[in-house]
Nucleic acid binder design. Structure first.
Length: 905
RNA sequence: GCCCGGGUGGCGAAAUUGGUAGACGCAAGGGACUUAAAAUCCCUCGGCCGUGAGGCCAUGCGGGUUCGAUUCCCGCCCCGGGCACCA
């Protein structure tokens, strides 16, 4: 065996071996448990970045771990190949987006292969290929038939100079990124997917996803945003009369309403502006600026009176009608009722424009007028100053108001959703063509199935002034499928989220003649999905929706696409800059900077390597092109090898946490692999791994240590906490290296190394593959049996926690022990005190535990007031929902008073 | 603005999520080997006080619950992710 660790040759040999043996090619096999591990597929942006390396290493470790536990494991890879960056690159380099994209895919595929991921490359797909996107088109047509796809107008950002639609990303401070022109809102016809038809199910099924992080489920819940409220009609005489509808979740405050506000696009606003130039100007002003929610929510709240009034449906009062920029046409009815006494925004708006503020109509905050504003005014309470509703609590009040409105035909209870239908039309070239044809005679006509796919020409080069398809006659001109007359193709393409909403289905049967076939039933749902937290809402929600749609079309049996979800943190790096002459920061790559440290290693100054002059140290930020702080993995892989890159990526931080890139740490990971190599090279391959009967005390102690470390590593593997797994491997090597030459040492080294290699193999597959064969442990470590600790525990068993209850003494034991402290305080049946009920806990503990104590939120008293009685535990309402049951523990510590210390009992 | 996270030594982090804070690694300092350097190996390494044994202070800040809080509760501050056309 070579004495020096040479990653390049070891890795090339291992990868060749895997290729030649088709090690990672998989097929459906009913005899074995399947495991489908999926990483979010990359956008082919040019080169891999550290985020990719981390993402794919995490899933690869999971893949190899699951495989060693005997499962039939699938890990595919593909390319999210449509999108805006290709068009931008095309504009800069005058290259068609297709050329740029395919070149990037080729380069990045090579990079992925050099990292040794256990990918079944025979399933590779790219969403920009017609044999993939034809099924986007096919499903679009099915949904059109079902009415889930429909057409209506939507608002977009319009650059008046370039005469083009801008993405939100292309709007900077309300201006177009290329032209600098103030952006305008524009209404254009678009296709929508009625995701709201699935809102109820998308919400309810979140509870069936225990393998998802709680935070992601919460975010989706809030995004879907189910709210119960009341639709209220305000009759008016405008334009010959009618009813203005608003939606409110606070119908209990209806009697406190003092004005009504509508969005600038609302028909009543438009109508009121007809002979009111000032109002027309205001509505025009509201058309400026971008469409993003963040921008709308942070802009100054402005409004203008229409001079018109509407009638309060219950009191008959005339209320002024206002136009306000904070009312959004897309939500609810595009109109709101305002209750300044009980809504902070209404309160501020009323103040600003001198609108009337009625006295409070709820008891939530005693005061008669809400001056100054306090948060308590927004809370629920009992109705006052509300005529017949006085004395009613929230729910009763809403019911009573809704009933009264219903009898007047001016309202009813209603559920609304924050979730909006998904607009999928994009006025862009590099995407899936929407399979529609516009005929003068027949209108918009769907392309018949047999004419699919509508192929996107790949030779266009966008120039920034709109979709080049509009100038491309070969694509545009066609005949109407209905009447055969002259027609024009739809040039809008689909949102790229459509592509990524079902690619995981296609991986299971990439060559299917239909959208998917029976193989999908074997593999789906995905057992483990791994990807960035930034996709927590949109991509994951659209994929869930799409899966349910496919299920309802009879294409799949899966209700949900992803069983378990791991959201990985971002990769961040320090930033360095100099102020340029134009006052802009010029970002300098960390690789070009020399950082000086003080005697404790703290950074004190930094200089540019090229000229030795100082540069300013910026913050630690997400690796990005704009801050020029990206670390290219390529040089790292070339210098240290893929295994080092993988070990460091796993060791530096737990998968879900953000990771700061630091080259010094890489050195440490590499050193570990070198030490492993050196240790293995010296080891005695003739020894067996069974400890002899006369093994020395030192060897026995080391063995215990090794198996304790192993047990912890098995637990951590089960939790996908790979940083501590690597740490355990380092500990194992430390223990083995320090082992002397006592009886049994050679045998323990043999055993320990076999454990270490197998534990490490998912993280560093190449070097462990080599050593495993070289040292004669077996043929192929990827299918080696997963190690078990001395007690014969597999990882699943190790995950089970010991029952703490068993360790606590019962009353009889306490009495038998006769500890004085127990006698002094007396004993009483009860819970251990904090949050567990006596029934579920049932432990017997010193009385001091169940004395009445104040809830930690200090709101109410909780717990029994007498230690002698069986306690009835009551919590304050706020805590009851939040507090999880906890058990008290006894453990001998020096600081613990005697009466709590088990060793004194 | 709204929703969701995070904050522990000089640095990345660990703590079996209520029971000895800082495992493992990096950086730094000291030493061994070497003509020298690199590599490798050994020792020290949160702060303050103390010769020492040891003591005190420390998990963003301020409170609270508890015998005991990095962990639970309340209120701040700061950082990050998402906000529907970046992917």
């Amino acid at each position: 065996m070579q004495e020096q660790y040479d990653p390049a040759s070891v890795e090339a040999a291992a990868q060749t071996y895997w290729d030649e043996h088709d090690t990672f090619k998989v097929r459906e096999d009913d005899a074995r448990e399947k495991f489908y591990c999926l990483s979010m597929f990359p956008y082919p942006s040019g080169r891999l970045h550290m985020g990719h390396v981390r993402n794919y290493t995490i899933s690869d470790v999971i893949v190899r771990y699951q495989r060693m536990t005997g499962k039939n494991v699938l890990q595919p890879m593909g390319w999210d190949a449509f999108g805006l960056p290709a068009e931008n690159a095309a504009m800069n380099n005058s290259v068609p987006p297709a050329t740029w994209t395919y070149d990037n895919i080729d380069y990045m595929r090579g990079q992925l292969k050099s990292l040794g991921f256990a990918i079944d490359w025979s399933r590779e797909l790219a969403t920009c290929k017609p044999d993939y996107y034809r099924w986007n088109q096919w499903l679009f047509l099915r949904l059109l038939e079902k009415g889930i796809v429909y057409q209506r107008t939507g608002t977009v950002n319009w650059d008046p100079v370039d005469q083009t639609v801008l993405a939100n990303e292309q709007v900077i401070d309300g201006r177009g990124w290329r032209t600098g022109a103030p952006v305008e809102k524009r209404e254009i016809p678009m296709y929508y997917m009625a995701i709201t038809q699935y809102a109820e199910e998308l919400l309810a099924d979140l509870d069936d996803l225990p393998g998802w992080p709680e935070q992601v489920r919460t975010m989706q819940k809030n995004w879907i945003g189910k709210s119960h409220g009341v639709r209220v009609g305000f009759p008016h005489a405008i334009d010959g009369g009618g009813t203005l509808w608003v939606f409110t979740t606070r119908a209990d405050t209806l009697m406190g309403a003092t004005y009504v506000a509508v969005a600038a696009e609302h028909p009543l606003a438009v109508s009121a502006a007809k002979d009111n130039p000032e109002l027309a100007a205001f509505i025009e002003e509201c058309q400026h600026g971008g469409t993003s929610e963040a921008e709308l929510a942070t802009q100054e709240k402005k409004g203008m009176a229409t001079g018109l009034t509407v009638t309060h449906p219950l009191s008959g009062e005339e209320l002024p009608l206002w136009v306000a920029n904070y009312v959004l046409m897309g939500y609810g009815e595009g109109a709101v009722m305002a209750v300044p006494a009980h809504d902070e925004r209404d309160f501020a708006f009323a103040h600003k424009y001198g609108l009337p503020i009625k006295p409070v109509v709820l008891t939530s905050a005693g005061n008669a007028t809400p001056e100054p504003w306090q948060e308590a005014y927004a809370e629920h309470g009992m109705c006052i100053n509300s005529g017949k509703y006085d004395g009613l609590e929230f729910e009763a009040a809403v019911d009573a108001v809704a009933t009264d409105l219903a009898t007047k035909q001016l309202g009813e209870k209603k559920i609304t959703w924050r979730l909006r239908d998904w607009g999928i039309s994009r006025q862009r070239y590099w995407g899936t063509p929407i399979p529609m044809v516009r005929c003068e005679a027949c209108g918009d006509v769907p392309v018949p199935d047999e004419q699919l796919p509508v192929v996107l020409p790949e030779e266009c080069v966008p120039d920034g002034s709109g979709n080049p398809l509009n100038k491309y006659d070969a694509f545009l001109n066609c005949s109407c499928p209905k009447c055969g007359g002259v027609a024009r193709r739809e040039t809008d393409t689909m949102d790229t989220f459509v592509d990524s909403s079902w690619y995981f289905f296609r991986y299971t049967c990439p060559d299917a003649g239909a959208m998917i076939d029976a193989r999908a039933d074997y593999w789906m749902p995905v057992d483990q999905y791994v990807g960035g937290i930034e996709h927590a809402i949109l991509h994951l929600l659209y994929s869930r929706f799409w899966t349910k749609v496919m299920r309802d079309l009879g294409l799949t049996k899966a209700d949900e696409p992803f069983h378990n979800l791991l959201t990985q943190g971002m990769v961040v790096a320090p930033t360095f800059f100099r102020m340029g002459e134009d006052g802009r920061k010029q970002w300098i790559n960390p690789a070009d900077v020399q950082v000086a440290t003080d005697d404790k290693g703290r950074p004190v100054s930094s200089t540019l390597k090229a000229d030795g002059q100082p540069v300013t140290i910026g913050g630690i930020e997400k690796m990005s092109k704009s801050k020029n702080n990206g670390v290219d993995p390529q040089s790292l892989i070339e210098h240290y090898g893929a295994d080092t890159a993988r070990v460091f990526a796993m060791f530096a931080a737990p998968p879900e946490q953000s990771l700061e890139w630091n080259d010094a740490g890489v050195e440490g990971a590499h050193r570990f692999l070198k030490r492993l190599w050196a240790f293995a090279a010296e080891s005695d391959t003739s020894a067996d791994s069974v400890l002899p009967a006369d093994a020395s005390t030192e060897v026995r102690a080391a063995r215990r240590e090794i198996h304790e470390t192993l047990r912890q590593a098995l637990v951590d593997f089960g939790k996908y906490q790979f940083n501590t797994v690597v740490s355990a491997c380092m500990k194992l090597l430390n223990t083995l290296s320090r082992l002397g030459e006592g009886a049994g040492a050679a045998q323990l080294r043999r055993e320990g190394l076999s454990i270490l290699l197998r534990l490490l193999s998912p993280v560093a597959p190449h070097v462990t593959h080599h050593l495993w064969c070289e040292l004669g442990y077996g043929d192929d470590i990827v299918d080696a049996a997963w190690p078990e600790d001395a007690a014969g525990q597999s990882s699943a068993a190790a995950l089970r926690r010991p029952d703490r209850r068993a360790r606590l003494p019962c009353r009889r034991e306490l009495r038998a022990a006769g500890a004085s402290c127990i006698r002094q305080s007396g004993l009483s049946r009860g819970g251990c005190g904090r949050f567990s009920s006596p029934a579920s806990c049932g432990r017997l503990l010193p009385a001091v535990f169940i004395c009445a104590v104040r809830c930690s939120c200090r709101r109410r008293w909780r717990g029994p007031t007498s230690a002698a009685r069986r306690p009835t535990i009551r919590w304050c309402a706020r805590c009851a929902a939040r507090c999880k049951p906890t058990a008290c523990r006894s453990s001998p510590t020096r600081a613990m008073p005697l009466r709590y210390c088990r060793s004194n009992l």
